[in-house]
Write a protein that binds this DNA or RNA. Structure first.
Length: 560
RNA sequence: UGGGGCGUCGUCAAGCGGUAAGACACAGGACUUUGGUUCCUGCAUUCGGAGGUUCGAAUCCUCCCGCCCCAGCCA
């Protein structure tokens, strides 16, 4: 497999062409412009991954710029969370951290230029009136009665808007373009609104705030951005983006739109994510079931897996819904290569080895990774009382069940071959333990006579086992398209009631004793797990990142 | 029904007039001290539909159909 494969898509084609033509003196400068009003989720990685990767690939730069033009929704908490998440993915804006609010003064000067050119005016219409005057999708709008105020009057009014003389909503500054344009964005768009609101960075210095359309292109221009990518819903805004830059006659970056993506069994809209958090359906923004980067991190997914996944879904203009299985593939693929193996029994079943010398303990050698010797080996204690998983024993084994059953011989991985001879039950008929005998000639797990067994089980020595808590996370929704709802339903109706199952009494091998939050392991034959920050010294908590592929489960399901 | 965008395997996605890459998923098989990994094999005579241009069309033209976005003083 070619790991260094060169990425190719229409955005990169545009840049290659620009470079070939010597545009922008050969510079490539991108930016990622999030609004600090929430946490980043996996969908955002497509956007910032693209921008930072473009800079890396074409020897350019990528800025991080917070688009903080609406003080009502923005907070420093989000600024910090967003920076943390981008860094976690391995991207670096170096010293180029900017805020649209850094440009408020400059933007104000630009507005004066447009007013002086007769291209912007102060409008006294109310929000409702502006909506009425705008027309509809099929009917043209009509001009505001304030549209032809003199330049002097506009200058005076705009100054007084800035000085705080007027109430919220009483006036706006609008661009004078074309009220009958088929593109509604060009029907005299609002450039500034009055908002007597405290801004997370500029405090109370301003009471007029620029709208996205007025701030964005000019901010790009100020930073010398050459290629300004954004999602496809801004396609209709590009004529406006271009209009402002052309009227101002300043450096003109190129806006390039691309499509977002959706993923099955999950929601990615900020609105939906907020609802999940605020409604208490999940435990905060970093709940491991969330597609927020904070959640994926806590689940144990690696940044490398996320990057690979994003690279593989491509960049285009069509809205796609990626199957969750594709993401799962990249999660497993990365973890498999990266993570050490360990033994952990999720649902313990006691196994007593009747012919194993009492009180004897042997240290068995386990490789930490079956395909990577450099990861070394470790010693694991073996004794006469063990735990195996309840799933690995059946009193009446179905067809194709290779694991332990009365009279059956199986291998304890890197231990011994054992045969089950007795099943012990309590008064309710519940199996409490099974009694087996070992073949003492099979230490390490292979028989000198060459006989083979089909089943190999993982195990933990009972007296040495660590008690750990396991949180089995599953998909948050049980519907592939949670947002597809019938009348009167909500996406919340598609919540999977079994998305979290806690196993409080799992048994892990002692090697895990010094594991720290964030450490990842493969529990052999089970799945990939990550130590949760909720862990305490006396009790480790593990989150299941993802299970191993399980072909036995498939067979069993087919058998009914 | 105004404007803009998109329609290629179940899902993503290459392709840009020369005769349908790749990935995931799925189905077989090999190997295996993880029913994991790995490795083979199979998986669109056909590109939303219908016409047309051409020696030749997923690629060009015409018409039609479907899906998405836009009427915030949100971004």
């Amino acid at each position: 497999m070619n790991e260094e494969m060169e990425l190719s898509d229409f955005v990169r084609d545009i840049i290659k062409k620009d470079l070939a033509e010597g545009k922008n003196d050969g510079r490539v400068h991108t930016r990622f412009p999030p609004e600090p009003n929430g946490y980043l989720h996996i969908g955002h990685v497509k956007a910032f991954g693209l921008n930072f990767s473009l800079a890396e690939e074409f020897n350019g730069k990528c800025n991080l710029r917070f688009d903080d033009t609406n003080p009502a929704k923005e907070e420093d908490e989000y600024v910090e969370a967003i920076k943390r998440d981008i860094k976690w993915l391995g991207y670096d804006w170096e010293d180029r951290l900017y805020f649209a609010s850094d440009y408020f003064a400059q933007l104000y000067e630009f507005a004066l230029v447009l007013i002086n050119a007769g291209k912007a005016y102060v409008d006294d219409l109310t929000a409702d009136e502006i909506r009425e005057y705008r027309g509809t999708l099929t009917e043209p709008g009509k001009e505001s009665p304030y549209r032809n105020r003199t330049i002097v009057e506009n200058l005076d009014l705009f100054q007084r808007m800035r000085d705080g003389e007027f109430e919220n909503g009483s006036k706006v500054l609008r661009a004078k373009i074309d009220m009958s344009s088929p593109n509604i964005n060009l029907r005299d768009p609002v450039m500034y609104r009055i908002l007597h609101e405290h801004h997370h960075r500029t405090g109370d210095k301003w009471c007029i705030y620029p709208m996205y359309d007025w701030a964005h292109g000019q901010s790009d221009s100020i930073e010398g951005i050459t290629h300004s990518t954004c999602s496809i819903e801004f396609k209709n805004h590009r004529p406006l983006y271009d209009w402002f830059l052309d009227e101002l006659d300043i450096f003109h970056p190129q806006q390039i739109e691309f499509a977002r993506f959706n993923m099955t069994y999950t929601v990615m809209s900020k609105r939906a994510l907020v609802k999940l958090v605020e409604g208490g359906y999940v435990d905060g923004w970093d709940d491991p079931r969330m597609t927020s980067l904070a959640g994926l991190r806590r689940l144990g997914i690696t940044p490398q897996a996320i990057r690979k996944f994003i690279e593989h879904i491509g960049v285009g203009l069509s809205l796609s819904t990626i199957q969750r299985s594709k993401f799962d593939h990249f999660i497993r693929d990365d973890l498999n290569k990266r993570v050490p193996r360990i033994n952990c029994v999720l649902n313990p079943l006691k196994v007593v080895l009747s012919n194993y010398p009492e009180d004897q303990v042997e240290m068995m050698e386990f490789p930490n990774h079956p395909d990577d010797e450099s990861k070394g080996v470790r010693e694991v204690p073996f004794s006469g009382e063990l735990f195996i998983d309840r799933d690995d024993f059946r009193e009446e084994p179905p067809k194709k069940f290779w694991r332990l059953a009365p009279g059956r011989e199986v291998r304890l991985r890197y231990g011994y071959l054992i045969t089950c001879n007795e099943v012990v039950k309590d008064d309710d008929g519940e199996i409490t333990e099974i009694r087996c005998t070992i073949d003492p000639d099979t230490r390490g797990g292979s028989a000198p006579d060459g006989r083979t067994v089909k089943g190999t089980l993982h195990w933990v020595s009972a007296p040495h086992a660590l008690d750990v808590e396991i949180r089995l996370y599953d998909r948050l929704f049980n519907h592939p398209f949670p947002l597809d709802v019938k009348e009167g339903e909500s996406f919340l109706d598609h919540l999977n009631p079994e998305s979290l199952q806690v196993l409080a009494r799992a048994k892990a091998e002692p090697s895990l004793k010094d594991a720290k939050p964030g450490d990842r392991f493969q529990f052999e034959r089970v799945g990939y797990f990550c130590v949760d920050p909720d862990s305490r010294d006396d009790k480790l908590v593990f989150n299941r990142t993802i299970s191993l592929r399980d072909s036995w489960a498939k067979i069993e399901k087919q058998q009914g």
